[in-house]
């Protein structure tokens, strides 16, 4: 049940799989630019309908945007792999290496997307924050947290041979606690006077991320086998 963990070997596997995803992305130039266009046009639509909203609305819109960006960016990661190719990966690398490489790649993708959408938000919807630098950090943390949950859900949806729609149904209730936490933590950037307990929430969010990675490592091998 528990295979002996070969640290060097699996690190190499993870890096190779990660590099393969990166290379595919650079060659095809589909996900990144596709999602980029999605981000830009959605923010433009928001700008057309909202103008420059005040802080609370800005924050709410930003996290809702992140949620939809995440679904779109991550959905492809498993759906693009055909049945035969998955079988091939299964023979050359373990399921744990595979899911870790996907988690890594999607976290990086969402990190980039968070930064881009943050920049576009400030450009178009204005900057209501007294402390924007803190919000850069928070949006990176948020992007990574969301990407972890949705990567695992994308794996489930792909195994069920379903579209991204199922992913959203499965994922939205699950990420509400994370979004609530992120909304609370965001006040660091929006207020000059802070209430207590925000550091604890940061830790809680980090703890949730660790929990998700651990669950993915334990559960993905069961998902994988046919």
């Amino acid at each position: 049940m528990w295979p002996k963990i070969n640290l060097i070997g699996s690190t190499r596997h993870i890096l190779t799989l990660f590099k393969k995803d990166l290379l595919l992305e650079i060659r095809q130039q589909y996900t990144f630019y596709g999602v980029l266009l999605y981000v830009a046009s959605t923010i433009f639509v928001l700008y057309m309908s909202m103008g420059e909203p005040e802080g609370a609305v800005w924050k709410g819109l930003f996290w809702m945007m992140q949620l939809f960006i995440c679904v779109n960016a991550v959905a492809k990661s498993f759906l693009q792999e055909g049945r035969g190719r998955l079988l091939y990966f299964y023979t050359i690398a373990g399921p744990r290496d595979f899911i870790l490489s996907k988690l890594l790649f999607n976290a990086l993708l969402m990190l980039l997307m968070s930064l881009v959408s943050m920049a576009l938000f400030v450009l178009m919807l204005g900057n209501p924050m007294p402390n924007p630098l803190a919000f850069v950090m928070i949006s990176c943390l948020g992007g990574i947290s969301l990407s972890l949950v949705f990567t695992f859900l994308a794996a489930i949806a792909a195994r069920a041979q379903q579209s991204a729609a199922l992913m959203a149904i499965l994922g939205f209730p699950l990420v509400i606690p994370q979004l609530l936490l992120l909304g609370k933590i965001s006040t660091i950037a929006f207020e000059t006077v802070l209430q207590g307990g925000l550091m604890e929430m940061n830790l809680l969010l980090g703890g949730l991320d660790v929990l998700i990675v651990a669950l993915a490592l334990i559960l993905f091998p069961f998902l994988w086998k046919d």
Partner: peptide, 19 residues
């Protein structure tokens, strides 16, 4: 497949729900 994927989601969701 239904049983296996359902079980995986059940465990994942429960572990996320408790916090």
């Amino acid at each position: 497949k239904r049983a296996r994927i359902g079980a995986v989601y059940n465990i994942f969701a429960f572990a996320m729900l408790m916090p």
